[in-house]
């Protein structure tokens, strides 16, 4: 097993771990952290899987860079919305019904 394949498997592990946290937790910050773990997992999967057979591949590396910025933007937006929600409701979880 090459190092890249190792990364891919770690990526799968992180995805599953993140998914578990995303479903289990109700606190919004924890769900966001879980989302970020899942995101890192899928980035590892993207790079690791591609580089397993072909050696260094700049294309998935660049895509991961793009993906990271997108994930940062989404997380930041989610935190802003969360802080505003916390401010008006005093809650850190979403109402279950609606």
């Amino acid at each position: 097993m090459s190092v890249a394949a190792f990364y891919a498997w770690i990526g799968v592990g992180l995805c599953v771990l993140g998914l578990f946290g995303f479903i289990m937790h109700r606190h919004l910050v924890r769900r966001l952290l879980a989302f970020n773990i899942m995101g890192s997992g899928s980035f590892l999967l993207l790079v690791g899987l591609a580089q397993d057979d072909r050696g260094v591949d700049p294309v998935p590396q660049a895509m991961v860079l793009t993906g990271i910025v997108v994930a940062v933007a989404s997380t930041a937006l989610a935190l802003v919305v969360f802080r505003r929600w916390f401010r008006v409701s005093g809650e850190s979880i979403l109402p279950e019904d609606v």
């Binding site: 995101g39 937006l77 989610a78 409701s89 979403l94």
Partner: peptide, 17 residues
């Protein structure tokens, strides 16, 4: 609307991943 947006955002993020 903030709660609706938050719920929407979580669904959208999970979907994109």
């Amino acid at each position: 609307s903030l709660a609706a947006a938050m719920r929407y955002l979580l669904a959208a993020l999970l979907g994109s991943l």
